[in-house]
Amino acid sequence: MSTIAALGALESGLVFALVAFGVFMSFRILEFPDLTVDGSFPLGAAVSAILIVSGVNPWLATFAAFFAGTLAGMVTAFMNTKLGILNLLASILTMIALYSVNLRIMGKPNIALLGETTVLTSTESWGVPYYVATPIAFSVVVLVVFFFLLKFLNSQKGLAMRATGANARMASAQGINTDRMIILGMAISNGLVGLAGSLFAQSQGSADITMGVGVIVIGLASVIGGEAIISPKTMFLALLGCVVGSILYRFAIALALNADFIGLKAQDLNLITAVLVAFAIVAPKFKANISSRISRGKNR
């Protein structure tokens, strides 16, 4: 693998670490199987792209993408908590609806951002090539989000949110408004995914209506893979797992596609993803199985 390919893998690994944070919030903290992300990722891209080509400040455009994501998450949470629609179904409905919304926002299926002023334009003055500067810039973003998310999850409100996902009946008996917690958590989750979509579009140079397909699977792959590597005993380790999982996932994909002797091509991407996710889910069981056999062997 060339240096540029490795840095490219790191770059998308960092963007998708934000997606992994979002998926971690919904799937793990709230136990809410949320497919909205497949729609909120391109939503973030679409909102920031249209604002950037209209001449809006790129930082403002990126913030708008985050905000749009939070709205998408709130719609899903609202349908689930207030209208009583099954969580998975509510998220699918939002996802489907967002496809139309995204087309409306962009006015066409694709917006090119080449030559526009994006948040990454300022990195040009750093005097390093873009493929080095972008991963550095994204690391800063991931670090900042990591810090705030960790603070939040260990705060009073964050603890209430974790209780809501872990045991909703107990949470309400402790005076926690579980509906409000689900709405807040889903807003943060999809806000982060919207932010990721915006950054992805700006680094790739375009926003595309199809760029959300499979984002949920990549996010899940990162979360589950991260858990297989770092056991999430504390919130710090769980969030670290999301970042590590996401970056390793990208490297695994890059390696698989670069290893000529296997004969895999770009079109095999989704197949590799599915295999990796299945492997990450099964791996911990194998690990436990093998270690229990070893210890049994010792006792004999």
Partner: peptide, 26 residues
């Protein structure tokens, strides 16, 4: 109680029962 939370986290939930909560460490 929540089995995935620690003993102190569970007790903290009860500590804030019926109180206004914010973003300070639990």
């Amino acid at each position: 109680s929540c089995e995935n939370l620690t003993i102190e986290e569970n007790m903290a939930l009860a500590w804030y029962r019926g109180q206004k909560t914010g973003f300070a460490a639990a």
